[in-house]
Amino acid sequence: MIELVVAERCTDCGACIEVCPANVLDRGPGGLPVLARVEDCQTCFMCELYCRADAIYVAPDCDRRVSVTKDEVLSSGRLGQYRRHSGWDEWADQFPNEQWLMETVFRRAGEAAAQSKAERPDVSGRK
């Protein structure tokens, strides 16, 4: 769930408040986003993707709160990681859309499954 908006990085653009599909954030005093309904966060990471300032940290736990500190998050190198690897905004050229590789992964998965079935003839899949 979303755990932190790093205040000194936040540019107060309001994008996270707007794009969060679960309406987790509110505009706080002075305009900075506040985590108003964290329990509604579905851990979809979309706020990170739309944060051009790389100020948001979504913790991987989707069922419980975890405590993270600003210093930990800043030094972890994880801020902006998803946006970068997704080739979002200014990263488009450096990390082009490789979603199509899923097809290769898909095909190999089928081959792997066929192979493991051949190796384990006692295990029958559901007819």
Binding site: F45, V58, P60, R78, Q81, Y82, L101, M102, V105, S116
Partner: peptide, 25 residues
């Protein structure tokens, strides 16, 4: 553990979000 190096690379490139929970834990 059954994914070879090439498959691992393709998984990372095609689905960066799959690795977020792992990288972060």
């Amino acid at each position: 553990d059954e994914a070879d190096a090439e498959t691992q690379r393709h998984m990372r490139l095609s689905q960066p979000n799959f690795f977020l929970p792992f990288d972060r834990t």
